[in-house]
Design a binder for these strands. Structure first.
Lengths: 196, 196
DNA sequence: TTAATATTTAACATTTTTGTTAAATAAAGA
DNA sequence: TCTTTATTTAACAAAAATGTTAAATATTAA
């Protein structure tokens, strides 16, 4: 593997790949070092401890999720267009890194710490207000805007998170599943934002 | 804790509680023994190794998911009633054990083994056929029946699986979140099975 | 009761994972 | 160049987790 951005970054990126892309939540520092093709001591040299590496990775995962949200909500698109964009971006991102949320969830459970997050005021609150407004306009089904948001993220995230189970139960091949995930962009939009 | 069903069962039940209810996927045999209030050696006495305990727990998790499916599909209810029942049962079950699927997913990823499951022919295939039929009747929106099924399970499972993230981002209290999950039974049904 | 069996415990051993130290090598600046 | 600093490695140490053994206790059936 190329170490263009330096070894420290390489280690962190490799850890993310193992956790977020491969879903190997039990990976050890040795596993990470091996995958990165470096001596395990470097993990300690750059991060001092496994715990700190994990915390950095978790913090950046959270930051990445924030980025997705903010990338959508800058610019003056209509709600409808924002929604389309969010679905497309989120599904693309999550297809590449399906287990990122899962990592956050399990790390949070591991240390019995809920997450007090600032993303609420900057992104979630305005988004919920937009949803409310769109309901008042009669464009989407009226419900608790938070339920709307939960529905949206459920439909986007779950099939990628649980692809192993879905594919197993429904006997869908890897290739076809990818196709289906692409189709979901349109499908989710139509469910959430019905034409009439 | 009472050991009515014997210590072996107690250990297994405790492991399930830690994995499925608390989402502590990194729990050690010591953690499990402590939570069960027994000597760790008993884990080895009854299960020989940590690996075997995990495999048994995973196999039973899978069996429990099958049970949910079959409990719905015996009896001669209409599709509409089956759907209502499935949503209600699944959400109740998953509220109690939100991380059961997550355990299966991570254990599957850990050992690079997909799951070749017999549940397909007995439950999933007939369910998909029912969905198709209902679409032909014009009762539900026409789409790939597998997408319908994915939507259904996404809407049911994800909010419970990712409750930590949802509550954190949207600033919802534990108590209120439970209320919202109850409301989702009706809400999901209406999304999936629209009145007109 | 007693002998056989099942269950539980403590002590020990091994393996795995994590963390530390010091030395070797490479890179960069004076 | 030489000297300082950064990076990497190997060897070692400590801790954590898993697995094994044998003895103690409880249970059961003859």
């Amino acid at each position: 593997m190329v170490k263009d951005k330096g070894t420290e970054q390489l280690i962190k990126d490799t850890a993310k790949k193992i956790f977020f892309a491969e879903g190997k939540l039990h990976a050890t520092t040795q596993d990470i070092a091996d995958a990165a093709g470096v001596n395990r001591t470097l993990v300690h040299y750059y991060f001092r401890s496994r715990k700190i590496l994990f915390e950095q990775v978790a913090e950046e995962a959270l930051e990445e999720l924030r980025q997705i949200m903010s990338s959508i909500f800058i610019g003056k698109l209509s709600f409808k267009e924002k929604l389309k964009k969010l679905i497309s971006v989120f599904i693309d991102e999550t297809s590449a890194l399906p287990y990122r949320e899962l990592f956050l969830i399990t790390e949070t459970n591991r240390h019995n710490q809920g997450l007090e997050d600032q993303v609420h005021d900057t992104h979630v609150k305005p988004f919920l207000a937009d949803i409310k407004e769109e309901m008042d306009k009669g464009n989407i089904t009226v419900m608790d805007p938070r339920q709307f948001m939960i529905n949206l993220f459920s439909l986007m995230a779950y099939p990628l998170l649980a692809s192993t189970l879905s594919k197993g139960f429904m006997r869908i091949s890897d290739h076809e599943y990818i196709q289906m995930m692409k189709q979901r962009k349109q499908l989710i939009f139509e469910m959430i934002y019905p034409n009439k």
